[in-house]
Design a protein around this nucleic acid. Structure first.
Lengths: 206, 206
DNA sequence: GCAATTGGAGAGTATCACTCTCCATAATTG
DNA sequence: CAATTATGGAGAGTGATACTCTCCAATTGC
């Protein structure tokens, strides 16, 4: 198919498809002449993926380029998580004190030594954000988040497809990005349910 | 103190402080004359809160205005969660099919009837995003997210301060926004830890 | 008295994700 | 085969967002 057909099938304006081509998010079509190319199902699937990343996934064009790059040429070792994560994390600020996270991790029994330092930085930054806002977590809340994170991660790692490396790559990379909105939405829903049970029906409705 | 002092203490440019004043995020100082005003600790605390919301919290100026508004005049009933949540959620799209979420919630034993429909919409949108991207959750993964969400919410609701209504408002509203980056960062960290345990040390380093 | 600061408002800037405009070339239609 | 339409490509323009700058008259501090 040609670009206008691709655009119509994907429900994305031609100009936007051209833009994704220029930005390197979408691979070129097969050239039939100096100024024409044809596109196929792989382009359609890729466009859907791009929109899922940019929309619900909430990632930027640059981040999407890195994430999609990890899908296109899988990293040499099992560096999948690292690649996907590093595309999404703010680069580590040297001024950030990560020692607090190290000692917390020790409490939790998490061996974080082989982890990407930037992830530790993200945790530290999140904790610092709470403090900056003058917000104190309820006792037990942090433990609940830690348990929840461990449970989610365990299920995810257990669920990595073992049949093909490509499927594993895809699962890990996309799972990192696309599941985040789901987790946040479920937490909000659970909060409302728990609040309703705690304070009685109608508490949320006024 | 005057605006330059406030700016220096908060580490925020004067122009930006003025901008927050204009946008209604920061309350006016106490006027000493037609063209002068003084600021105090409440302004400093508020500025720190604003930066925590706009930075780590990742909310927009408009969303911050709603969230801060919920702090300033607490809603009549215990509509706290609703107010905080509705500031952060995309408005409900009528075209979105929420019935799937209803039946899922029934499976989970979540009484979602009294919940804000927009939250259900967010869950539906997140699930749709996964499907659009051609991504299939591993069996058991969704259950893990649901359990995790319930655990987190339970700890949060249990932890709501009961001593003063103001403290409760503050806890609920800020907890909704500011804890999100923490939850996501912990999940990523737990993923790396779990991947390391599963695939052996060094698996993440290449 | 007089330079420096202030509050206030409008305009300017940077970034981002598109979206539009051209244009030479190609394909399609009559 | 001529006229119309579509295509790939690149640069410029757009709208939203979060600042940031520039003025200005009124105040302040020395």
């Amino acid at each position: 198919m040609r670009i206008s057909q691709l655009s119509a099938d994907a429900g994305i304006p031609v100009a936007t498809v051209k833009y994704y081509l220029r930005e390197g998010l979408l691979h070129d079509g097969h050239r039939t002449s100096a100024t024409q190319a044809i596109y196929d199902e792989t382009h359609l699937a890729r466009l859907r993926l791009i929109r899922a990343l940019l929309g619900p996934g909430g990632v930027s064009i640059a981040q999407a380029r890195t994430v999609l790059g990890a899908l296109d040429d899988p990293p040499p070792a099992i560096d999948l998580l690292g690649r996907a994560h590093s595309a999404l994390m703010t680069p580590l600020d040297p001024a950030l004190d990560v020692s607090e996270v190290h000692s917390l991790a020790e409490e939790w029994g998490w061996p974080v030594d082989s982890c990407d330092p930037a992830v530790l930085g993200d945790v530290a930054r999140a904790l610092q954000g709470l403090r900056d806002a003058g917000f104190e977590l309820a006792p037990g809340a942090l433990d609940a988040y830690v348990r929840a994170a461990r449970d989610m991660a365990q299920a995810e790692i257990d669920g990595i497809p073992t049949d093909s490396p490509d499927a594993a790559v895809r699962y890990v990379v996309l799972g990192t990005v696309l599941v985040e909105p789901l987790v946040l939405a479920l937490r909000r829903l659970a909060e409302q349910v728990a609040a309703g049970e705690r304070f009685g029906d109608g508490a949320l409705r006024g």
